[in-house]
Design a binder for these strands. Structure first.
Lengths: 257, 257
DNA sequence: CCCAATTTGTTCGTATGTATC
DNA sequence: AGATACATACGAACAAATTGG
């Protein structure tokens, strides 16, 4: 009888990684939620029969994934922690560091998802929410004068989409829309992809968004979808003018829109 | 004059985290790619003026994010590493552990993205690629007899989509489609969400996919889009029958479709 | 305000494991 | 097979942060 084969696809895990996985599934199995305190370092050292350094490295692995947080002092310890959107964004951003994402790639997703979001939200928003959207829009009611204003307006328009996403009841849709917006914002900032020629063109975004809010308020889902489809295609075309290959960078976490 | 305020939103980073961030931006600034060797532990200890344990924890953090890998022995060391799709999937999956994703949530995304993918691929695939797709389809040319076969067929059908995604030139689209398929596969496996009633209904997926491959071969993008839209809505409806709130779990990494 | 207890955070010295030559 | 160069692991000590008396 052949021995229990370990497929080579399953890499040998270092001890801290093993411990991290063990703790992970332990938390899972017991259904411990955010805020639950794990055993102390000393306790874990005893349970796993390993040195302090090893245990600490394991905890660092979990912490890097955003799954736990640790505090010092009495009543301190290691606590189960809900992965933040900022961390998830940063971690996923790392994946695309070496993948050559283009403006086209990102807009292909946005063109598919944003109209879906708009249709989804029509007639579902409170007047407070609609007012919040209109509030962001005022940031670019005036045409930009300087490149700096230009940049701010572009970022603000991305914030509009982020706010819209936040109102969605679908966490996955919400995350993806904000993630793609973040990627774009990152490009515009890091590559200075906001130059003179498009000055009036961006301001046309204001018109789209005003019409969108109207459609959302009226509860006309198909109109909202059509407007955002149009908006996305236009924005795509504009960004395309300054097409560049995206040299995405590691995201130092925290800088989310 | 007030002191330079540190906004509380910017949390104080522990030393290993600082080191990890420093190494990250160091790699970035120098444009080092996968395979590049970082200085040895001992070297890093010297550069940062910190103890071995601290440096090791920093490296663990980067390793947990999938950004580096370390090897022992002569010629060993810490190497820049391209984040794998499996790791990115696992890390993002962690984020959705506490978010209550439903079947509807996931299918809302699939219904938006999969047709887009199909339209994108029409007329772009080689005969070899088309044959590979047809090959996967043979896995469920026979109606399932047992629940076990049923499950396998469902997984195989998800694999079909994963294979399709792999052929896309858009890394973001590719990742998202495979990620959503993985989430679904995870549900079906963990919640045993493949039960008797749908036996013949799943087999109707075969028909969809056969027509899809035909459209792809013919280069008819709009037909492909329509077929997949239909297919998604149907699959959604079927899964909905066994609707459950998704109790996603931590993904132990590596189990990708 | 300070002191003491608790818990994580950091350091150093040493020893072991592993891959290359 | 043995030497070398590296990561990996251990253990004991000390430092820093937080809480409560």
């Amino acid at each position: 009888m052949p021995p229990v084969t370990t497929p080579e696809s399953v890499e040998r895990l270092s001890r801290p990684q093993q411990v991290a996985e063990a703790i992970k599934s332990w938390v899972m199995a017991n259904g411990w939620g955010p805020g639950h305190r794990l055993p102390s370092e000393l306790d874990l050292i005893g349970r796993f029969g390993m040195a302090k350094g090893t245990i600490r490295e394991a905890i660092r692995i979990l912490e890097a994934q955003g799954l736990v947080k640790s505090r010092t002092g009495p009543g301190g310890g290691v606590f189960v922690h809900q992965v933040s959107e900022a961390r998830a964004t940063a971690l996923l951003g790392n994946y695309f560091y070496f993948q050559h994402l283009t403006i086209d790639d990102i807009y292909q997703i946005r063109e598919a998802l944003e109209p879906e979001l708009a249709a989804n939200l029509a007639g579902q928003l409170s007047e407070t929410q609609l007012a919040a959207l209109e509030d962001v829009m005022t940031c670019y009611s005036e045409p930009a004068r300087t490149p700096e204003e230009e940049r701010e307006q572009h970022i603000a328009s991305l914030r509009f989409h982020a706010l819209l996403a936040e109102m969605s009841g679908n966490p996955l849709l919400r995350f993806l829309i904000r993630f793609t917006a973040n990627m774009l914002a990152d490009i515009t900032v890091s590559r200075r992809l906001y130059s003179q020629p498009n000055r009036e063109l961006w301001s046309s975004g204001l018109d789209y968004q005003a019409r969108l809010v109207a459609a959302l308020r009226a509860g006309d889902g198909e109109a909202a979808r059509a407007i955002l489809t149009d908006h996305m295609q236009n924005a795509h075309r504009l960004m395309k003018l300054q097409e560049t290959v995206l040299t995405q960078r590691f995201l130092p976490e925290g800088q989310i829109i």
